[in-house]
Each structure stands twice: as structure tokens, then as C-alpha cells.
């Protein structure tokens, strides 16, 4: 999280904004006034908290002086900020690391899990089938759109953990595949 050097009222944030790394160095000057250097670009900020979801900011930089309305809400991964119609997911990297350690095997890329809450419409394989990388394993549907979950590698289907019409969510392993040539697992 933030490093607070005692007495100085300086805070450092290691963020990602829409997946861009952003290092923000903050000096709190007085109650609603602070300076922030964002990836070394300095800004002078005064702000008003209008509501839980709206921050009104006056943002001064070297050659610009802007009034900005930022809409903001917390979400499981961090905060979502909406400015001028564009949305940015802002994550604190250090907090994210802590979270990841807690659930390290939540979503390994090699597993067959839906990208979003959805409903299983088809199961294209059976336990014992040999499948090749890219082969369709399970088709899920969300909001009238079908998505095919494919085999991440060549191997044998050892377990199917869902049935047609089941409601499933990201992180759930819908089918398990034993990698070809892999005697463990």
C-alpha cells in the first residue's frame, strides 16, 4: 500500500491505470490541496468531494489548468474512474500482490474456466477423450453470445465439473485435462 514517511506527509503510490504503470508521488499541502507527480509530471490539485461517487478537481500542470469531474467507485480489483466518458480501472500494485498471494491458484491460464458469469450450453467432450490444443471443450453463453472454451494443450479429459444449463462463474474449473506426457497432476 502507501508508504507514509512520518512528518513529511508524503505518500507514494505504485498504480496501474488501464494497465499502464503509474508511479504517483503525493505531497499533502493542506486539507484539500496537494501536489502529485504522475510518472514525473507535476500537478497541483485542489478538490471537493461532491458525493461518494463524484470528485471535483482543479488540476494545474505546467501548461494547463483544468476543471475535472471524476466519477469513482470501488470494485474488487481497485477503483473504477470515469472521466469524459472513458473508464479507467486503477489498481494499487502492492495491494494487488497481497490479494494474489491469498488466492494464488484462483485463475491459472491453463485451466478451462469461463471469462464471465455464464451458462453452459454444450459440452463437446467426454471423460477419457483425447483432445488437442485449441479443440472446443465447453461452450458457455452469456447475454445471448456463445463463447467456446478450448483445450489449452494436448491431453486427456479426466474430469468434467459441470452439466449443460449450469450457471458458472470465472475461476470455476469446468473441465480438467491431463497434459499429454504428464504423469503427475
Amino acid at each position: 500500500m502507501a508508504h507514509l514517511n512520518k512528518g513529511e506527509k508524503k505518500v507514494e503510490y505504485n498504480l496501474t491505470v488501464a494497465q499502464h504503470p503509474v508511479l504517483a508521488n503525493v505531497s499533502i499541502l493542506e486539507k484539500q490541496n496537494l501536489t502529485i507527480s504522475v510518472n514525473l509530471t507535476p500537478y497541483d490539485i485542489t478538490y471537493e468531494i461532491i458525493s461518494e461517487n463524484l470528485i471535483h478537481m482543479s488540476v494545474k500542470s505546467k501548461n494547463r489548468d483544468r476543471h475535472v469531474n471524476a466519477y469513482i467507485s470501488s470494485c474488487p480489483d481497485g477503483k473504477i474512474v470515469c472521466i469524459h466518458g472513458s473508464q479507467y480501472l486503477v489498481c494499487d500494485l502492492e495491494r494487488k500482490e497481497k490479494k494474489n498471494k491469498k488466492s494464488i491458484d484462483a485463475a491459472l491460464p491453463d485451466q478451462i474456466t469461463p471469462p464471465m458469469p455464464s451458462v453452459v450450453v454444450r459440452i463437446s467432450v467426454q471423460v477419457g477423450d483425447f483432445v488437442v490444443k485449441g479443440q472446443s471443450i465447453i461452450v458457455v453463453s452469456a447475454m445471448k453470445m456463445e463463447t467456446t472454451l478450448c483445450a489449452p494443450f494436448d491431453g486427456t479429459v479426466v474430469k468434467i465439473n459441470c452439466a449443460v444449463n449450469d450457471k458458472v462463474a470465472p475461476g470455476w474449473i469446468l473441465a480438467e485435462i491431463k497434459k499429454k506426457g504428464d504423469s503427475h497432476q
Partner: peptide, 9 residues
């Protein structure tokens, strides 16, 4: 940058 600032605020 503005999104990062809003987050910090």
C-alpha cells in the same frame, strides 16, 4: 494521469 489523481484523492 487524471484517473490516477482521482484515485489518490
Amino acid at each position: 494521469d487524471l484517473a490516477a489523481i482521482a484515485y489518490v484523492v
